[in-house]
Each structure stands twice: as structure tokens, then as C-alpha cells.
Design a protein around this nucleic acid. Structure first.
Lengths: 230, 230
DNA sequence: TTATTTAAAAATGTAGATATTTTTATTAAA
DNA sequence: TTTAATAAAAATATCTACATTTTTAAATAA
């Protein structure tokens, strides 16, 4: 009756925790992920820990070298550009399909999530706002994409979102902590919404591509200031 | 000096072997993947075996239910259509980019691999031909896609190819064993090649999408004849 | 220094212990 | 007799602890 049991094994738990720690930057790019340290941190045996690491290698958040163990996947300007470009192309494609296929329900969903996102400004606490804006921003974009009608394209989209997440986190602070940048985003989303509702799939695709590419210069600057010029 | 050592651990080996066995249909969709049976088959402990299975879950070739073990991921008409549609959209996108960005070297590559593919008809042994045509066909398409200039898009492409592989195998026999179907493919590839070299990226995108969608009816029929009507 | 040997650290793998699920057998109720 | 519920047994999945192999670091000799 009470539904949500969802028993999970230790590998699943460790996977989730380590993934969070990686995207939050608790482990830095290039850092060695020492088995003993991880086992202690997540209170877990080597077997399940390897399983979690192995999955994160598939996610491209961790690299593995046989007999030499695991490292946090490096970050670079080149990878930033590649991930954001591929992601923008994919999201633009999905958006075009969504505009072509989306029904009334889809329209209602994007209008609702756009509204919910626009109301975030009322929160006080800075860090709380960061999380709230981010989750609602993601929900808005997910609502748009969901209209494409392909579960596999949605999976590919999530793959790219996961890979972009470490870079996105850098951008997020700049954006949400600056009233100016936040207002710019608000306007971009408004424009996007109007074009989606106008059902012009070609223009929607174009606008979405530009929207997705916008963060690159900001993130580039942050990475450069951290000495990641490569 | 002698280069190719590439030491791999047991999980890597088991991953590769099981993946092959899955795409070749040695384990059927829905089959329970019994730990004891797998350990015996691949002569390996439970730890590395779980690691391999875990990676195949990420690849969507295996499903996992906590405390209940692993199964071969089911196949269905719905999944066939979804995979092929998403893959066709992605390949079409990548093709458009490749036509826009590809240089002389890219052109030379696709001309060469198209030629190599067209020469396969001379082989006698049927099964040998199957493998040869398949690998050259893949090489031809890879050569086209490689012009897109994005490593991440190429990764996404590979993801979809892996997921399509079980369905593709069904199609492959129909195609390669039928002189008629093989000739149709030869013409399609010729047409594709001409349009790529004409540098009309929009038409190239369109033709590639159609080319990628063509196998669906054939595979549908095969699945239906096996009782997979859902 | 540079190469070689030795010792420590770390990764990987196996075997067996523990917990969970599934099956079978047993009993009670309809 | 059949069905349902319960309990015992078997099968299975999962995890930990320890053993083995490999890599890295340190020490020593050329």
C-alpha cells in the first residue's frame, strides 16, 4: 500500500553520493580517487565501490586506468565547448520536434513551469534560492523537451545534462547571484516561451540553440581565472 | 616498443564477452542472468561479474532489480521504433554538420570507404561476407559522421548504435543474404555519396534520415514473426 | 646523477559469510 | 477437494574480509 520502498544496494547508494560529490566539486578534476579513502568516506566495501566507480566511468565523470585505479575526469576548455555544442545541437533538435508534436497538455506544462520559474525571485536566502532556481529552470527545460515524444532522445538529453553539470555549476552561481544576469535569463525564457507557443519549429530550434550556447563565454572566463586555459 | 599492451581487468573482459553474447542473441530478451551461470561461463568471481553487468545496465542491454538480480533487457516493437527514430534524427543532424564542416580529407575518407564497401560482393562464404559487409558498412557511416567535428556527438552516436545492435543483427541477415536488398542498399549509398559530395547539407540530412529509417519495416516483420507484436 | 633493488601502498580478485527472495512443503479454512 | 495462508528449505543476490598481484615510492649501488 505505502508504495515507495525502492530498496537499493550499496553500489547504488555510493554511486549517487559520489556523483553528487563530483558535481559539487568536493573532488577536483584530476584527483586520484583512492579506494581506501572512498571506502572510508562512504562506509562500504571495495566491491560495491568499484561498481559505483565503473558506472561513473560510463557517465564520463571518472576515468579508469587498469591496475592504476580511478581519477576524477579532467575538465578543460575544449571539453566545455564540445559538451555545450553537442548539447545545444541535441536540445535544439528535440525542441524542434517538441514544437511539431506537442499537444495542449505540453503547452500547458511549459506555461506552468515558466510561471513557476519566474516566481523564484521572491526567496531571500541566497543558497536556498540557488537550488530552487536551478531545479525550476531544469523543470522548465524538461517540460519543453518532453514534447518531442521520444524516450531515447530524452535519455540522450539526460546524458548530456549529466556531463555538463560540473560546468553548469560554475555558471549557475554567476547567473543566480547577479540580478542583471537573472533578468537577462528571464527575458530569454520569455522570448523562448512566446516562440514555442507560436509553433514556429524552425525558429524555436534556432533560439534554443543560441540559448544553450550563451553560458559558454561566462564559464570560459571562470575556467581561465582558475588557470584552466588549455 | 611493441605498443599494444592494454592490460585489462577481469570486469572489462567479462563486459566485452557478455556484450557480444547479448547482441548475438545467445541470451534471449527477458532471460534471467543467473550469477552462478555467468560466473561459470566467464570463469570469474561475483565482484567483477557484477561490475560488468552494472555497465551493461548503463548501456541498456541489461536490466537490474535490486536484490533480484539481472535480466537481459526486453526487446519490443515500441523500443525498436524509438531507438531507430532517435538514432535517425541524431545521424541526420551529425550528417548535416559533417557536410558543413568536412574538409578534403573527410571527402577522401567517405569516397574510399564507399568504394571498399562496394567491393564486398566478391566474397564467397556467406557468413564471412556477413561480417565483412557489416564492418565496412559501419566504417562507411563512421567516415561520414566523423566530419561533424564533435567528439561528444560521436559518443552519443555510438551509444545509439550499441542500443540498436540487437535489432540491427536481425536486419543484417535479411539484407546481406538477399542480392536484391543488397543492390538496393548499394544504390542508396551511391545516392547518399553523391549528395554528400554536392555539399547540400539540408538534403544530406534528409536523405540520411530516410536511409536510417528504412530498416524498420523489415525488422518489424521479423519481430512479428517471432511473436513480439507488442 | 642514473639504474637497480627493496619496501610500502594500492588495486584487484576470491572465498565465504550474511541477507533476501523464491520455491516447496505443510497446515488450516472454505 | 480445492484454495489460501503459513512455515521451512533451497536458491540466489549481495557484501565483507582477506589474499594476491601490480604499481609506486624509497633506498641503495653503480
Amino acid at each position: 500500500m505505502s508504495g515507495n520502498d525502492e530498496k537499493s544496494n550499496l553500489a547504488d547508494v555510493a554511486y549517487g553520493l559520489l556523483k553528487r560529490d563530483l558535481t559539487e566539486g568536493i573532488f577536483k578534476p584530476g584527483d586520484k580517487l583512492l579506494m581506501s579513502a572512498l571506502r572510508e568516506r562512504y562506509e562500504i566495501g571495495a566491491g560495491p565501490m568499484r561498481e559505483a566507480l565503473s558506472r561513473l566511468v560510463a557517465d564520463r565523470l571518472v576515468t579508469a586506468e587498469s591496475q592504476k585505479g580511478f581519477r576524477v575526469a579532467p575538465m578543460s576548455l575544449a571539453e566545455l565547448k564540445d559538451i555545450y555544442f553537442a548539447r545545444a545541437q541535441l536540445e535544439a533538435l528535440i525542441t524542434e520536434l517538441a514544437v511539431q508534436n506537442g499537444d495542449e497538455n505540453w503547452e500547458a506544462g511549459i506555461v506552468a513551469s515558466a510561471h513557476t520559474l519566474s516566481k523564484v525571485t521572491e526567496v531571500h536566502n541566497a543558497d536556498e534560492m540557488l537550488g530552487l532556481w536551478d531545479s525550476r529552470h531544469k523543470a522548465f527545460h524538461r517540460a519543453i523537451a518532453s514534447g518531442c515524444g521520444s524516450a531515447k532522445l530524452m535519455e540522450l538529453r539526460m546524458t548530456m545534462l549529466d556531463q555538463a553539470e560540473r560546468y553548469r555549476q560554475l555558471w549557475l552561481r554567476q547567473t543566480v547571484f547577479s540580478a542583471e544576469a537573472l533578468e537577462t535569463k528571464r527575458r530569454e525564457h520569455q522570448e523562448l516561451l512566446e516562440i514555442l507557443l507560436s509553433r514556429d519549429s524552425v525558429q524555436a530550434r534556432h533560439i534554443m540553440f543560441e540559448h544553450m550556447m550563451n553560458p559558454i563565454p561566462i564559464i570560459t572566463e571562470i575556467l581561465a581565472s582558475r588557470g584552466l586555459i588549455g
